[in-house]
Write a protein that binds this DNA or RNA. Structure first.
Length: 297
DNA sequence: AGTTGCACCTGGCTGC
DNA sequence: TGCAGCCAGGTGCAAC
């Protein structure tokens, strides 16, 4: 099954970071395989990823029923019948592969964990850069856990609107770009979707985060526009199957490929699709920012 | 306290 | 052709 099509831009060939839409796509792909299944075996091939695996990781998972698979920000949360939650983060290059246990493909050099399920399915986690990690956390402690206690608004659903955005960004001295990347303000956005949302909203990444509210603190048109742009960009990417490109496979084992063109991300020097001006690349906080200097003010 | 910058890690690309 | 060196990025933590 080959889903790769011709790639025409550098971005499509090269970039594939699991931001919220990609993680949600992975969740939806893994859900049918995991939920309702029991873990019958865990093959853990190294002691750590970004962080060490939890103590007695395989032992604590063995025999457990997976009751649900949720997502919070960029985290996948598998609810177990032991009242623990398996928390998984894909880092920058993590991916899952689903196949039959009886006929597993050759072990990849970066296959770090494999879960064998009661259904005869094997789910393998692969992560070349090992920026991902897994944790086991008691369900009752999840909300207060340091990983989740300070996480910001979900861009999906109805909690993110202009007022919430303006409130969160009020008094921030930093740039819109940096504020949008801050997971404690808005959850799940990474470099790609921040660039895209700002372009869509027509706002400069250099603009002060605090400029989304008027003197009274009320959200202005920029706040409403940006909130809408974030929701739209994320929803469209999920609908398109996540912008999962080369080093990010969909959990069914296929290359996650889809029709999705970034308007500015990694398109330095190419014409802005809105006005034709050349897309500019700058560095903010050590990260590339791509934007249109004419459309985005 | 709020903000900035670096380390972690590896594959892929660029330039010699 | 081969190889060294740089770049990408999410997160946590150290340093201003």
């Amino acid at each position: 099954m080959q889903l790769r099509r011709n790639c025409d831009t550098k971005a499509e060939q090269r970039k594939a970071m699991p931001e919220l839409p990609e993680v949600e796509t992975v969740r939806r792909g893994l859900e049918p395989a995991l939920v309702g299944a029991r873990v019958v075996g865990v093959e853990q091939r190294r002691p750590d990823l970004r962080f060490p695996f939890p103590e007695r990781f395989a032992e604590r998972l063995a025999g457990r029923l997976i009751k649900a698979l949720r997502r919070r920000a960029k985290y996948l949360l598998a609810d177990l019948d032991s009242a623990e939650v398996l928390v998984m983060h894909l880092g920058m290059s993590g991916s899952f592969r689903v196949e039959e246990s009886a006929r597993p493909s050759n072990r990849g050099s970066h296959d770090h964990v494999a879960f064998d399920l009661s259904t005869g399915t094997r789910v393998t986690y692969n992560d070349p850069r090992r920026f991902g990690f897994m944790q086991l956390i008691a369900g009752a402690d999840l909300a207060a856990h340091p990983l989740f206690a300070t996480i910001g608004l979900e861009p999906l659903g109805d909690e993110l609107d202009g007022a919430a955005l303006a409130r969160r960004f009020a008094n921030k001295r930093t740039s819109l770009k940096a504020a949008l990347l801050d997971q404690s303000l808005i959850a799940g956005l990474g470099n790609i979707y921040v660039c895209e949302a700002l372009h869509r909203a027509g706002l400069s990444p250099l603009r002060a985060a605090s400029s989304l509210a008027g003197k009274t603190g009320a959200p202005n048109a920029r706040a409403h526009g940006l909130a809408g742009a974030i929701r739209d960009v994320v929803a469209e990417a999920i609908a398109a199957g996540g912008s999962s490109l080369r080093d990010h496979r969909r959990p069914d084992g296929r290359l996650g490929y889809f029709q999705h063109a970034f308007r500015v991300y990694d398109r330095e020097g190419t014409p802005c699709p809105c006005c034709g001006a050349r897309v500019r690349r700058i560095v903010q906080g050590g990260r590339s920012t791509f934007y249109c200097p004419r459309c985005q003010k």
